[in-house]
Amino acid sequence: MASTSAVHAPAVRPVRGPRTAPTARPRLTVVAAPKTSGSSMPFTILCTLIVTATLAALLYLNIQMSDTSYEITRLQSQSQRLTEEKQALVETDERLGTPQELERQAREIGMVPVTDPAYIDLDTGEVIGETSPTAQTEVNPELADVPAEVAVPPAQIYDQPTTYHGMGNEGV
């Protein structure tokens, strides 16, 4: 619109009128070739390139972002899985470390509580207290021999289904 109005601008016309009036106007004259500013092709190509490049960059960025987003989701679920794995290991560790379990295992391999410990003073090398090889200590007759499962029962969280033999990674 802007270029058409510049070429056909009516404002030019009043100037042409008075000029043709004094001399007879020749029917045909040789006019100089209009001075063109050269082809507009390079400019068009440049514009197209800019637009294409912008679009391509935009597309690339978007692809990158959604790729990263999928990656985040994947890593998050991996992190979740690892957290659960760690939790399961911590729980096993805690179960094996309870006093009830330690005592049970110690007794299984034939250990008994020590009743007469001796101490060594590290400064003097002196042995404090008298100790002797521990016999299979009998239970204090003044105290009832309450079975361990009754006196201090183990936690009631570890009676997990024993029939389940999966590796725990079936959901992966």
Partner: peptide, 18 residues
Amino acid sequence: DRDLQWKAQQIVAGAVDK
């Protein structure tokens, strides 16, 4: 102390039961 607490519970159980 968890170990001491455990032993104490065991011993109390013995006395109460006796």
